[in-house]
Design a protein around this nucleic acid. Sequence first.
DNA 1: CGTTAGTTTGAGAGGACTCAAAGTCTGTGG
DNA 2: CCACAGACTTTGAGTCCTCTCAAACTAACG
Lengths: 202, 202
Amino acid sequence: MHHNFPAGTNSPLADFVSHIHPVKQEVIQYINKHSFPHFMRRGEVLIRPGEYSSHLYLICKGAVRAYMIEGSKEITTWICAENEIITSIRGFLLREPAVEYIEAIEDCELAGASYDTLQYLYQHHIEMNVMGRKLLEQYYGAAEERNIISRLTRAESKYNYFVERNGHLLNRIPLKIIASYLGMTTETLSRIRKRISKPPKS
Amino acid sequence: MHHNFPAGTNSPLADFVSHIHPVKQEVIQYINKHSFPHFMRRGEVLIRPGEYSSHLYLICKGAVRAYMIEGSKEITTWICAENEIITSIRGFLLREPAVEYIEAIEDCELAGASYDTLQYLYQHHIEMNVMGRKLLEQYYGAAEERNIISRLTRAESKYNYFVERNGHLLNRIPLKIIASYLGMTTETLSRIRKRISKPPKS
DNA sequence: CGTTAGTTTGAGAGGACTCAAAGTCTGTGG
DNA sequence: CCACAGACTTTGAGTCCTCTCAAACTAACG
């Protein structure tokens, strides 16, 4: 059901791993063989709440977010772009049903691999565990970052914090989504932007 | 430097593991030999920011919290009690210096084990990995729970959420700490309690 | 060029914060 | 066993920020 990457080219996942830690040709080939490309159009949904996802994906191109629906509003949990690995952490690490939607914010090119593929590599090639740790770090870091943002009480501080670390996303992501990531209304975010762009008359 | 548990008695950590998943006598003995009791008085600090911690602890009795200092106020990251495992996740899983204080809220009896001990068991006894996963679950869950709390905008909702899942801690933990966990001032928390205890005149 | 999603602007209300001060609890030493 | 110091909790008044609801404006896309 999954297609492979064209023969003769490396899977982007293989490259990703190589850049973290050199790996044997054998590993490269295994990844090439068992990973697959996946394309998504803006707005398309990759995972829905309740689904058991057994795959992870590297973002080669595009941007993706995870969000939950609470009452009448969306809450964006994380936003990722090129060269980051995404999955439903609950589904993938804990083997439980997903609690959030994962959705493409832009047209995307992904490189996917299954849980089983990764497990095989973990067991047979210790250096692959480095990637596992990277994944954990990324997710744990993101969780912590969101914690920090949401404990800032000033909406302006939240926005500044976001800009400092995710400035490159500013022009790519709809305001609406940033607001829902920062835990404020679009109106408030809009006003903050205005206030900042026209620096205070001092 | 560490004392062992009295000969003839099991380490609480061994019991903890057994209850999750049956393990061979050999494992029990290894744990008994390599884990150790540790006592703390209320207010005592176990880990400080910057320290590289290589141990984890099971709480046999008492309660413990982690907190950071930001500006002039404390921010409580998690609160744990009996039968939960604590450590500096950064230090232990990611091998980085701790970013928070870990402090006893009550007099505590802990059972400790080192990173190396655990690694040994991971490699030689697969069932020990279940405990590793439990630890991850607990920490990830706590991070997510705090995320949920802090994205609730009503202070009263935060408190209710906390009571629902951590009601048993209410009478043990100073208000001050709960407030800092919930991201509000003690004054606000105090007023909420009052409002709730005297149900609305309807 | 029209429809729809996304963004901006405005006015008003409510909730949490700050600062200040009065109570209450706890543990220690006399 | 009591008294006292220090920490913890409650209460009060006033301010400021963000939210809500509404409506105008703009951009993107067929």
